[in-house]
Amino acid sequence: MAREQDDDERTAGRAELLPEEQAVESADPEAQAREVLRDSDRRSEFPEPTMRRRPEETT
């Protein structure tokens, strides 16, 4: 239950649209927030590998 409450609080906080999101509007800000947070959690749990370059490869 605590996890569900935390998720609800995170969703409510994220459902407040950012200025760029307000510009295009959202039919369902809470559903959008849930999906953004789900994606963020997935990326945090399973980060994509970072490509490493040597300094001479960046020019």
Rank of each mutant, 00 (worst) to 15 (best):
E45Q: 13
R3Q: 10
R34F: 00
F46H: 13
A15D: 11
P55H: 04
M51N: 09
G13W: 05
Q5N: 10
P49N: 11
L18A: 12
P29N: 03
R42I: 02
P49L: 14
L18V: 02
M1G: 12
R34D: 00
A23C: 07
A27K: 10
R38I: 01
R52G: 13
R34N: 01
R53E: 14
R42Q: 04
A2P: 07
E20I: 04
T11S: 12
S26Q: 12
A31D: 05
T59C: 12
R42V: 01
D39I: 08
E45R: 15
E25S: 10
Q22V: 06
R38D: 03
R43L: 09
E16N: 12
P55Q: 03
T11V: 13
D6N: 14
D28F: 06
P55S: 05
E56M: 13
L37W: 06
S44T: 08
M1T: 05
E16P: 02
A12F: 04
P47Q: 07
E20Q: 12
S40D: 09
A15I: 05
E48G: 05
R52M: 15
D7M: 11
E56T: 10
T59M: 13
A2R: 13
T11H: 07
R14H: 04
E35H: 08
E16R: 13
R10T: 04
R53V: 14
Q5A: 13
D7K: 09
R38V: 00
P19C: 06
D28Y: 04
M1V: 11
V36H: 07
R38E: 07
E20K: 09
S26H: 07
A23W: 08
M51H: 07
E16T: 11
Q32F: 05
P29V: 00
D8N: 10
S26N: 09
L17N: 03
A23G: 10
M1S: 12
A33K: 01
D7H: 05
T58H: 15
S40H: 09
D8A: 14
E25Y: 05
S44W: 06
R14N: 07
D28V: 02
R10V: 04
D39W: 05
Q32G: 00
R14S: 09
E16W: 06
L17F: 01
R54H: 11
Q22G: 07
A23Q: 14
T59A: 13
D6C: 11
R43E: 03
Q32E: 10
M51K: 09
A33Q: 01
E48R: 14
E57R: 08
